[in-house]
Design a protein around this nucleic acid. Structure first.
Length: 423
RNA sequence: GGUGAGGUGGCUGAGUGGUCGAAAGCAGCGCUUUGCUAAAGCGCCGUAGUCCAAAAGGCUACCGAGGGUUCGAAUCCCUCCCUCACCGCCA
């Protein structure tokens, strides 16, 4: 959520920076400001009447203690009741209207984010390793089926398309990768492990920005009161919602595993083969909460922490920076990490590392006590460290051998309990 | 799920209809003094919104949340949420 004062004072700057986004409605800003004027006018009138009522009520109390008649004053207060009622309804309605619009307004890209319209405009930042040379590379579906690692048919049978069942060594590999990721980030990168609920309240989804705009992508339960988490970002970032945290805790760094549940509405047919786009997938998420002046550096180190996963696993990857037109709703700046999947002959996004600045913290009223004693909004960041399913794809496709087996990266041997998977 | 108790400022904790935004203590900040790994005295010390060109200042709202009663609500009534205790059920 953007600062209403900023919009009020510098609407042109807000509009021009928002205009570089794919979803940047400047007309929404005009609507917000129009409501703002009406809202404040109504509020001021209401407050004046409230002040008058308070003054008269005190007067009544004083007179009564002196046993004097107060009927006239009481009538005067009563005479404003209807107007106050109207003004209360008006300010409430205008406040809600304004908030609703503020909640669907995306974040401002940082000034240096490259301006562009779509994914093709995203500049390459760096890459690691090289594409492995594999003759007649098979894709992970063929590999996994021949080795009995996943059972897509039965996944579809029990839950529908977009759900996978991992079986035998396949399930074990999933668990091995998970443990490797959590150990790496907690032991070597200094993140505190969190195991949060997989269901969160609506207000948490609003806090991190999934709602109200993207409800059709989420799984709601309990009549819309609770949602299955689409990423651990939601429960973990909201851990400190409505708090004033101490800056001595900064940077707060959490690593959390959760399954992620997404409807993927509108993505049918795009990259849907095998495990690449699922309604449920596992992910280890990294979340940081820090002071505004540190968030740029924290994004760099966060991204490096996520990259290290692929580095250690020896997988070829590249880091790209999202252009303004390709950034997510709440993002001020985002790096995507894409791993090479030999069987797909394509890069797969396994991590999206984002600095939200104070966009989320405003929504969840997450503040810290600054050195000058003032309460300020924190900056929040998160990045996958990494998504499991696509990493799984890359491990299978990169490790595949001519005899049909899969060699696992050395870092996973002890977690998995073997060096390779074969029939 | 049932019964009971309770939710007040960073913390502890008073306050049951009218100068209560809220006593007191602790913590924090500032000053003074003595001096040295601290003590004492004094003062300051909630959040948000809004008004004014701005500062100073004013006003409004907030005592778990939302309604209600009243000229006036932290205080009375209703609903809900949460915490604790015990009971029931249960992985």
């Amino acid at each position: 959520m953007l600062d209403i004062r900023f919009l009020r004072e510098q609407p042109d700057i807000a509009k021009s920076r928002l205009a570089t986004r794919a979803d940047g409605h400047s007309e929404t800003i005009d609507a917000i400001l129009a409501i703002d004027v009406r809202r404040r006018a109504a509020e001021t009138r209401l407050q004046t009447l409230q002040g008058e009522r308070n003054r008269l009520s005190k007067e009544i109390g004083k007179l009564r203690s002196q046993k004097q008649d107060t009927a006239a004053l009481e009538e005067e207060v009563k005479s404003h009741a209807a107007t106050m009622q109207e003004l209360t309804l008006e300010t409430d309605a205008l406040t809600k209207e304004q908030t609703d619009l503020l909640l669907i307004l995306p974040n401002l890209p940082q000034a240096e984010v490259p301006v562009g319209r779509e994914a093709a405009d995203n500049p390459l930042v760096r890459e690691f390793g090289e594409k492995p040379v594999i003759e007649n590379a098979r894709d992970h579906v063929a590999i996994a089926e021949s080795l009995g690692l996943i059972d897509p048919d039965r996944g579809a049978k029990i839950s529908g398309s977009g759900f996978a069942v991992y079986t035998g060594a396949g399930a074990r590999l999933e668990r091995a990768i998970l443990n490797f990721l959590l150990d790496l980030h907690t032991r070597e990168h200094g993140y505190t492990e969190v195991s949060p609920p997989f269901l969160v309240k609506r207000e948490c989804m609003v806090g991190t920005g999934q709602l109200p705009k993207f409800e059709e992508d989420m799984y709601g339960v309990d009549g819309g009161g609770l949602f299955l988490v689409p990423t651990a970002e939601v429960p973990v970032t909201n851990l400190h919602r409505e708090e004033i945290v101490s800056s001595s805790q900064f940077p707060i760094k959490y690593a959390a595993y959760t399954p992620c549940f997404r409807r993927e509405a509108g993505s049918a047919g795009r990259e849907t083969r095998g495990l690449i786009r699922m309604h449920q997938f596992d992910k280890v998420e990294l979340v940081k909460i820090c002071a505004p002046e540190d968030s740029r550096a924290e994004l760099e180190s966060l991204t490096q922490n996520a990259e290290r996963v692929l580095h250690i696993l020896g997988l070829h990857y590249r880091v790209i920076e999202l252009c303004t037109g390709d950034m997510g709703f709440g993002a001020a700046k985002t790096y995507d990490i894409e791993v090479w999947a030999a069987g797909q002959n394509a890069y797969l996004e396994v991590s999206s590392c984002t600095n939200f600045e104070d966009f989320q913290s405003r929504r969840m009223n997450l503040r810290y006590k600054a050195e000058d004693g003032k309460n300020r909004f924190c900056h929040t960041l998160n990045g996958s460290g990494t998504a499991l399913a696509r990493l799984y794809v890359a491990i299978l496709e990169s490790g595949q051998q001519p005899d049909g087996s899969v060699n696992l990266p050395p870092a996973l041997h002890s977690y998995f309990g073997a060096e390779k998977i074969s029939k």
